[in-house]
């Protein structure tokens, strides 16, 4: 028998919202309880799919970094040595998709974006457009996924319990 974290959280959340909250008389206390329900609801997908989420971000960001570095090198723009070293390390394939690597990937992509904007005048209008299209597309891929997991949940009830 296996009950997923998502199912546990859903059952707890349901009980708090529908069985406990109606019994709480204080507006303030009820708003706190419903806030807890809201947060539990946000966590359900994020817990069960955590490794997939991290892996997807690392892969997407690394691919984006590679494209930025290629674009800069083609135009003889400055590419920080740290970025090249990172790509070589990742290219070796022996990496573990954990939170530390995801954070480092964020740092490296941030560095790549800075390097692109610093060298933007080396790109003609069409190439700059294509590069920015690729960057925005990559950022939107992650942001859309996160937004898709966002659940309005009890937000209106929290507002109604203002106190």
């Amino acid at each position: 028998m296996f009950i997923s974290a998502e199912e546990y959280l859903q059952r707890i959340s349901y009980a708090l919202e529908h069985q406990i909250a109606p019994l709480v008389e204080s507006d303030h206390a009820r708003s706190q309880l419903l806030s807890a329900v809201f947060l539990l609801d946000q966590l359900t997908d994020r817990i069960d799919y955590k490794p997939d989420i991290i892996k997807q971000e690392i892969e997407t960001n690394c691919e984006t970094i590679r494209k930025v570095v290629d674009g800069l090198e083609q135009r003889e723009g400055d590419v920080p040595g740290e970025l090249k070293a990172f790509l070589e390390e990742i290219g070796g394939g022996a990496w573990i998709p954990d939170l530390a690597l995801r954070r480092r990937c964020d740092e490296m992509l941030s560095m790549a974006i800075d390097a692109y904007f610093a060298a933007r005048d080396r790109f003609d209008a069409a190439s700059a457009y294509a590069m920015e299209d690729m960057l925005l597309g990559s950022l939107t891929q992650i942001a859309s996924r996160d937004l898709g997991m966002f659940k309005p949940s009890t937000s209106q009830k929290i507002l109604d319990s203002r106190g």
């Binding site: 960001n61 984006t64 954070r103 964020d106 740092e107 992509l109 941030s110 560095m111 974006i113 800075d114 960057l135 925005l136 950022l139 942001a143």
Partner: peptide, 9 residues
């Protein structure tokens, strides 16, 4: 939270 690519962009 460290540097975030979207914020940097």
């Amino acid at each position: 939270f460290g540097r975030k690519p979207m914020v940097v962009y």
